[in-house]
Design a protein around this nucleic acid. Sequence first.
DNA 1: CTGAAAGCGCTTACAG
DNA 2: CTGAAAGCGCTTACAG
Lengths: 364, 364
Amino acid sequence: MTPRSKNSDNLAGQGDLTTSGERSKLHKVTINDIARLASVSKKTVSRVINESPLVREETRDKVKAIIKEYGYIPDPQARALAFRRSFLIGMIYDNPSPQYVVNMQRGILDALQDTNFQLVLHPCERGDPQVHEKIERFVSQQRPFGVILSPSISEDDALCAKLAGYECAYVRIASVEFDAPHQNIRTYDTEGAAEAARHLAEIGHTRIAHVHGIKSFRSAHERLEGFRKGLKEHGLSLPKKYIVEGAYNFDTGVSCTQKLLQLKEPPTAIFLGNDEMAVGAYQAARKAGLKIPDDISIVGFDDTPMAARVWPPMTTVRLPIREMGAAAAKVLLSFDGDERPKERITFLPQIVIRESTAAPKRLD
Amino acid sequence: MTPRSKNSDNLAGQGDLTTSGERSKLHKVTINDIARLASVSKKTVSRVINESPLVREETRDKVKAIIKEYGYIPDPQARALAFRRSFLIGMIYDNPSPQYVVNMQRGILDALQDTNFQLVLHPCERGDPQVHEKIERFVSQQRPFGVILSPSISEDDALCAKLAGYECAYVRIASVEFDAPHQNIRTYDTEGAAEAARHLAEIGHTRIAHVHGIKSFRSAHERLEGFRKGLKEHGLSLPKKYIVEGAYNFDTGVSCTQKLLQLKEPPTAIFLGNDEMAVGAYQAARKAGLKIPDDISIVGFDDTPMAARVWPPMTTVRLPIREMGAAAAKVLLSFDGDERPKERITFLPQIVIRESTAAPKRLD
DNA sequence: CTGAAAGCGCTTACAG
DNA sequence: CTGAAAGCGCTTACAG
C-alpha cells in the first residue's frame, strides 16, 4: 500500500509547458500553476472553479482561458478533503435483477457524463442484520456527494433518517412518496399494474391471478393494489386463492405458477410482479404442457430486455429504469447549498403488449 | 457545489468520547486524536496504519488497541491526497451483456468486502474515437489504486501501455496472455469452445455451424479456433458456409441463425459465441417452426442465468465470471510497492449440458 | 524505532 | 471583488 514512485523532479508549469495535454503525464497542473499564470491568487482561481459570483467578469474570463489552455482539472481528492465531501455518487441497491441494476447504472452514468463525478457501487441485502451499519460506514467514510437508493432499500425510512444524520444527500427511487417531492423519483407502479389488469380484462379474461413480489417491498403492495383497482374498473375481482406471494426471482415464479395451475379452477391469465418471475411462469406453463398464450396468458413487469427475447415475446409493463437513474443523478447534482429543485419527478409505467397474452379459450 | 454545513464545534476526542461508535456522527476521529490518546506522534500512528515494520511491537499494540476502541478509520480522501493515489478500484468494461457485467461487479465487490476500497464504474465503447482519451482522463484524475479491464477492452494493448505511463496498476481479464503472468486473469476460451465441439460431435452431429462474436474481440477468434480444434479431434471440419459473424448481441443471434437455416443444407447444430446470441437463435428457430433440440441443437457460451431460464434450458459453456472478477481484484489489492504476485491465474470454462442439444434427426 | 516539519491541492474564515 | 493565512487529514523526506 505504499506508492510506487517518488518523483522529485520540478513542478509542472515551470516554463516547459507547451500546448495543452502535451506535458508529462505524471505532472498534473495545479491551482497554483493556474494562479501564477493568470497573475491572480489561488483563491480567485478557486472561486472561478466553484462558479462563485464574486469574481469580476474580466478576471473570470482570463482565468477560464488559462484553465482551458492548460487543460486544468482540479484534483478531486484535494477538493474532497477541503470540502469534507467527495465527488462520488453512490448507488445503493438490493434489487436482485441484473437487468434492472445495469439499466439503472447506465442511467446514472448518462447523467454523470462530462462531469467530474464518479459512480461507486454499494450493493446491500435487506436481510443482512448489518445493512444499516455497513451503509453508515460507507457514507461516513467516503462522504459521497450524494447517494441514490433504488427499491427496495429506498423504502427504508429508518435508513434515510440515518443518512440525513450524516448530512448525506440522497434521492430515493420508489413507487410511493416519502420525503420532499424533489428527493423522490416516483414510479406510480399502481398505474402500471392497473394497465395490466385493464388489458387482461379487455381481451376477455375473468379468471385472473396475481403473483406478487416480496412483501417487504412496497412495490409489491402497489402493484397488487393497482392491479386490483384496474380489475375493479371492469367489474372483476381478485379472489384470495388467486393471489400468491413470490420473491421477485425466477424460482418463485416457477413455484407460484405451479401452485396456481394446480387449483381446481386454474386462472386463464397470470400477472406476475416482475419479468424475472414471469419467465419462471413460462417455465412452469411449459412443464405443465400448457401453451402461451393459447392455454394461459402471462404478463410481467419491468420490460427488461429478456421480456422481448423469450418465446413468445412477453407482454409486460415497462418502467423506464435508465431514465429514472439519470433523473435521480441529475437531481443529486443539482443540490447546491441549501437550494433544491422543487418539482416532483414522476415516471408513468406503460404496458407493452406482445404475444404472451390472448383471449382465453372458451370455457366449455 | 458548496458544502451544506459549517461546524465550528469542538474537535472530537476532547473528553466526551464514550464507547466506540457512540460519538457525534459528524465528528470523525482523526489521526491526531489517536496519536494524542496513545501518546505517540501521528507519524507513528501512520506507520501502524500502513503496517510499517519500523514500529516496536509494544507501541504497535497500544496504538492498535486505541484505533479499535475508537473505531478509527483513516480518511480515504486525505490518504489519497498524500499518497497521490486513491482507494478506488476502477472497472473498465465494454461488454454488452448485463449478466456478464453484473457478475463481474459482484466478484470484484466480493473481494473488496471488508477493505476500505470502493468500486467505481467506467464503461466505455471501443468504437468511440475518444475511448483512450476518456480512460486517460479517468485514471489521471482519479488516480485509482488500480483498474480491472474486462474483455474486449482488455485486449487493447495500446491502452494498457498508456495506463502504464500513468503508473496505473491494472489487471486484464482475457482469453490470451498479454503481460506478465500476474497481470492477467486467463480464461482459456479455446478449451471451452473445444468442449462444445466435442459434445456436439459425440451426440452424432456432423453438420455443425458456428456464429462467432465481433471480430475485434480476441475471444471471438479463440472460441472459433477452439471449436474448430474440438471438431477436428472427431474428424470433423467447419466449412466456410457454416461460419457466420455476429456481434455478441441478441439481434445478430437471430439474423445469423436465420441465414444458416436458409442454406440448402442447413446445419443440425449451431454453437453461438455467447448466450445472448444463442437466445437469438432460439427465437429464429421458433420463427422457422423448428423445435429445439429435435430439429436443431443449440449451444451458447457464458452460462448467464438466462441460459437456465429459457425453454428448453440451454446447453452452454460456463465461465466463472464472478470468481474471475474476485481474483482480479485480489491481485490488484496485493500489489504492494514493487512486489507483485508471481503465479499465473487461470480459469477453465466447462460445458454445462442441458436440454437444447440432442442427437440429430436421421437424415433421410 | 520515533518524531517535528513540510507538503499533497484544494477550501474556509477572515480581512480589506 | 480579491488575497494572505490557516486548515482539511493524511504522508513524505529528513533527522535523530
